[in-house]
């Protein structure tokens, strides 16, 4: 096992940031760590990297205890911190070269790696720029390049795409999947559920310092009761009786706003047909109709009783 964290407890004074946190990461996967602000994602990462002392628990990387002096383990890790950590006094190129140089001493290899990293984040036009002259998104991309230039076997990214525009974000996500295909194991921390859905092979959902659910995208959605969200536009909704809809099998809830009926259904077959039959019997004419699969937000909502993002 690549990472094995057991019963990690970390307190900041009275605040319990990590409450018996457990995590296992297998080689080759992309693990998404999804959780709202303040749920303890960064704290967990910092403990795993031995940047923080913790109160209880064990952390093993490559089956060895992780300590501040575990340099051989550190050699294999690439880190992209949530807070941009670069030298304002060095250029874009020099920054990437500096961090790459902490891992790779051979100059020629490094030159090649730095060039690849620059291409990876698309900073080719900004090599000689001072970081002070980069926009927020470009700075984030530099931060990523500095973390992954040395081609580490394990890459830990803590909300790397904050402030990055959608197109560059897609490029970066693509790139991360490519790094994974090349053999890197990835831990990806974010509060964007779309990102984890897009790239992660496994997702851990965090809340209040604990992992509250873990599995693949599908597994997580199977775990919860809610299935599809069925949206129907009704042209003559005055004939509708909501209680009769909720009485149908597998229906969790139904809501009517103006002409829009939203039905949350549980897992079961023929739910849509039952609804359509009912509406036909009532002589209600249907305009548009579409259905959405459940989201990770539904998963989070169902487990915690609150939305992932308010």
């Amino acid at each position: 096992m690549l990472i094995n964290v057991k019963n990690l407890v970390k307190r900041y004074g009275d605040l319990i940031a990590l409450d018996h946190f457990n995590l296992e990461v297998q080689e080759g996967e992309i693990l998404g760590l999804l959780g709202p602000n303040g749920s303890g994602k960064t704290t967990a990462i910092n403990c795993i990297l031995s940047l923080l002392k913790y109160d209880k628990g064990t952390i093993e990387l490559y089956d060895q205890p992780m300590t501040p002096d575990a340099y051989d383990i550190k050699r294999n890790i690439g880190v992209v911190m949530q807070n941009v950590a670069i030298f304002d006094e060095l250029t874009v190129y020099e920054n990437i070269d500096y961090f790459c140089g902490l891992y790779i001493s051979d100059k020629h290899t490094r030159k090649k790696l730095v060039a690849e990293a620059i291409a990876f984040v698309g900073l080719g036009d900004f090599k000689k720029f001072s970081p002070k002259k980069l926009s927020g998104g470009l700075l984030r991309r530099l931060n990523i390049a500095c973390g992954i230039a040395h081609k580490p076997k394990l890459i830990i990214l803590d909300e790397p795409t904050v402030a990055v525009d959608p197109q560059s974000r897609n490029n970066i996500l693509e790139g991360i999947m490519e790094l994974n295909r090349q053999g890197a194991t990835i831990i990806y921390t974010t509060h964007y559920m779309e990102e984890v859905e897009q790239i992660c092979s496994r997702i851990a959902i965090m809340d209040k310092g604990k992992i509250i659910a873990m599995g693949t995208n599908e597994e997580l959605k199977q775990m919860i009761k809610s299935g599809e969200h069925i949206n129907l536009e009704l042209l003559n909704p005055e004939h509708l009786e909501l209680s009769e809809i909720t009485a149908l099998p597998h229906i969790i809830s139904a809501e009517l706003t103006d002409h829009q009926l939203v039905v949350k259904s549980g897992r079961g077959k023929n739910t849509l047909i039952a609804i359509l039959d009912y509406l036909k019997g009532r002589n209600i004419t249907i305009g548009k109709i579409y259905s959405e699969p459940p989201t990770l937000n539904d998963v989070f909502l169902e487990i915690t009783g609150k939305a992932l993002r308010d």
Partner: peptide, 19 residues
């Protein structure tokens, strides 16, 4: 001041550079 900046310091600490 630069090297002791918390973020940069942490970034250096996670690297295999011995203290």
């Amino acid at each position: 001041l630069v090297f002791n900046n918390t973020d940069l310091k942490r970034r250096n600490l996670v690297s295999p550079l011995r203290s």
